[in-house]
């Protein structure tokens, strides 16, 4: 119980902290932060329900006005903007990442970490994000998918990093990968 509380809280904090670390700075000066990598890792390392709760905890704190979203943003306003769906997709995405890790325990950690991050951290989160934009922007699904395509390469890079980190953790501290230990 205590371990679960500590891991969920620390992973929510880690995801928030990753929002302040630029992992790549694009040619025109826009930094891509690692916050969604935190969502992927939460699910891949902690497993489905703990990973989902870590992301849920973080978005609740963001909604309450704690500036924990990348770039020091926070508050209820974010959930009413067109990109609010992505935030709501985080806990679901982390849950799916964890579920895939738990179900396919025998597969090589890099491969399953990458697959789980792509499905949970990209597909599921984007589905929620696109749905949110569809409901608020009055554009067609296809137009919205074009609109968000620009962010996919950065997220694919994060999924690869997520796979690498899962592999390193499985090698050097397997006891911490709760998704594989139950």
């Amino acid at each position: 119980m205590e371990r679960n509380i500590a891991y969920i809280a620390l992973f929510a904090a880690l995801t928030a902290a990753l929002g302040f670390i630029p992992i790549i700075t694009l040619a025109f000066g826009v930094p891509i932060t690692a916050q969604t990598l935190g969502v992927m890792l939460g699910g891949c390392i902690l497993g489905s329900w703990r990973g989902g709760l870590a992301s849920l905890l973080l978005i609740v704190l963001i909604a309450l006005g704690v500036p924990l979203l990348a770039g020091g943003r926070g508050g209820l306003g974010l959930f009413f903007s067109p990109s609010g769906g992505f935030l709501i997709g985080w806990p679901i995405g982390a849950y799916v990442c964890g579920l895939i890790m738990e179900r396919f325990n025998g597969i090589h950690p890099f491969a399953i970490g990458l697959i789980a991050s792509v499905i949970g951290g990209i597909l599921v989160v984007y589905m929620a994000g696109v749905m949110g934009m569809f409901l608020t922007l009055e554009q067609t699904f296809i137009e919205i998918i074009y609109l968000v395509m620009v962010f996919i390469p950065g997220d694919l890079f994060k999924a690869v990093v997520s796979g690498l980190i899962v592999m390193l953790l499985c090698k050097y501290r397997p006891e911490s990968v709760l998704s594989r230990n139950g």
């Binding site: 809280a9 904090a13 928030a16 905890l57 973080l58 704190l61 924990l68």
Partner: peptide
């Protein structure tokens, strides 16, 4: 849990 997150960041 809320306090832990705010302290840990």
């Amino acid at each position: 849990t809320f306090g832990l997150v705010i302290r840990s960041v």
